[in-house]
Design a protein around this nucleic acid. Structure first.
Lengths: 104, 104
DNA sequence: ATCGTACTACGATATTCATCGAAGTTCGAC
DNA sequence: GTCGAACTTCGATGAATATCGTAGTACGAT
């Protein structure tokens, strides 16, 4: 069967700013977030080009999801991740844009 | 002698967003940043009420200073810390305000 | 010069966490 | 059904780091 299914994540009220900042404060994860910011439709995990193995990538995606930064839905064997821009902007207006404005 | 002296810190161009986010993503340090945000004149380290010892507090202040979040100047035996709001706002507009907007 | 205050630096410890490989799951295709 | 692809979970390992106590420095006051 398997229609598209959402993986477990905190809802807006459960998101903690500590967790979000800690999630963003890691180079690989920040790279993921930047990639997602440029792809409003979401990106499949495997399409991300990162200097780590698939299992490490999965670990980072889980961290980002559990902290509330992104949402992941299953589509067949693929997992599509999207930034939770609306929630983050509502909770911490300017935070995400500020981070993405960073030159490097 | 001892006129007021600035402790070593990165200048604006050397600040890295990874380091800033990682510095902010720790509960004790975030508490410090919130306190500093409410005191534009700066705060002496010892005036901060935190659930850690003085040496741990010093460690967190160093982390915040070396990442570029705050600046510290010596005044007699006291060390006054101030948020580097202008630099952070210039580099990452909205980031700091977004973080401080967090309810909890 | 002695004392007390305000902090920092050092060394140690324990926890957290980024990383990997290997094994497992889930799905689509054949 | 079998196969392969996409991804996750598990267990292990090594590195980073939050914490502490102790010792030290720097300064102002007496």
């Amino acid at each position: 069967m398997s229609t598209s299914k959402q993986l477990p994540q905190p809802d807006r009220g459960e998101i903690r700013v500590d967790a979000v900042l800690q999630a963003l404060g890691e180079p690989v994860r920040l790279t993921i977030v930047r990639a997602l910011a440029g792809a409003p439709e979401g990106i499949a995990c495997g399409e991300l080009e990162l200097p780590v193995t698939a299992s490490t990538r999965a670990h980072h995606l889980r961290t980002l999801r559990e902290s509330g930064v992104l949402t992941t839905r299953t589509e067949g064997t693929r997992r599509i991740s999207k930034l939770r821009r609306d929630d983050l902007d509502a909770l911490y207006p300017g935070l995400l844009d500020g981070v993405l404005a960073a030159k490097q």
